[in-house]
Design a protein around this nucleic acid. Structure first.
Lengths: 109, 109
DNA sequence: TCCTTGTTTAAGTCTTAGCTAATATTAGCA
DNA sequence: TGCTAATATTAGCTAAGACTTAAACAAGGA
């Protein structure tokens, strides 16, 4: 499974958002995400496993709890791929912005 | 299908790389990608459809050919999500870089 | 040691993405 | 109009991923 696939799942993206702000115990993530998406504790745990397995998160055992922490290492791969193309599409994006601005001006007239 | 899912497929990423450099007819993309991945014209065409449907590419009809061109619009969504988290993981990435540098220095000693 | 809480793992089901093969569509040309 | 080349679309198959339920595991307290 490629890093992009890991980010492809909305539940996993949400978990990363949560972990980006602060480290959390599995149970806390389950409480938030499980409620938001209406899925079981087990399902969330499986998503956490995917994040672990692909290096997006690390775990620290604290008694019976597992504290999850974001690990940005795999983002390097993502960023690298995007950066490669960015040089090509950035000019086009600027052209797009110009078009939008032109449209706005036109609408004002 | 989310934009991240679109980028999740290696064939589609390859097609975007090709289109980033220049516009190409469907057949040219089929020739390159089909050979590299060992898949049929139909399969490539279906990937092109996904890219079209999600706004990653636009088509121009030129006689019997369809000329594909990259459209960076959906990248805005991707970039926005990544940017939201970047503020959080960037410091951690720097910490990671420091760790690596420290490791290198240590190995030199 | 047994129980309880927090969590992961295993097994099985369902859905969907990606593929092939076959067919349809589109446009130009004889 | 019929033929050919370029491409898209459809149907059907298969594999993988996301889910639920049930079972296993880990750690601390009675």
């Amino acid at each position: 499974m490629h890093a992009f696939d890991v980010l492809g799942d909305p539940v996993r993206r949400r978990i990363l958002e949560i972990l980006a702000e602060d480290r959390h115990a599995s149970g806390e993530i389950v409480a938030i995400v499980g409620e938001e998406f209406g899925i079981t504790q087990s399902a969330v745990s499986q998503h956490l496993k995917v994040l672990r397995d692909h290096g997006f998160a690390t775990v620290e055992v604290a008694g019976p709890r597992r504290i999850y922490q974001i690990d940005p290492a795999p983002m390097v791969e993502i960023d690298r791929w995007l950066a490669r193309l960015r040089g090509f599409w950035e000019p086009k994006l600027e052209a797009l912005a110009v078009e939008v601005a032109r449209g706005k001006r036109k609408r004002r007239e």
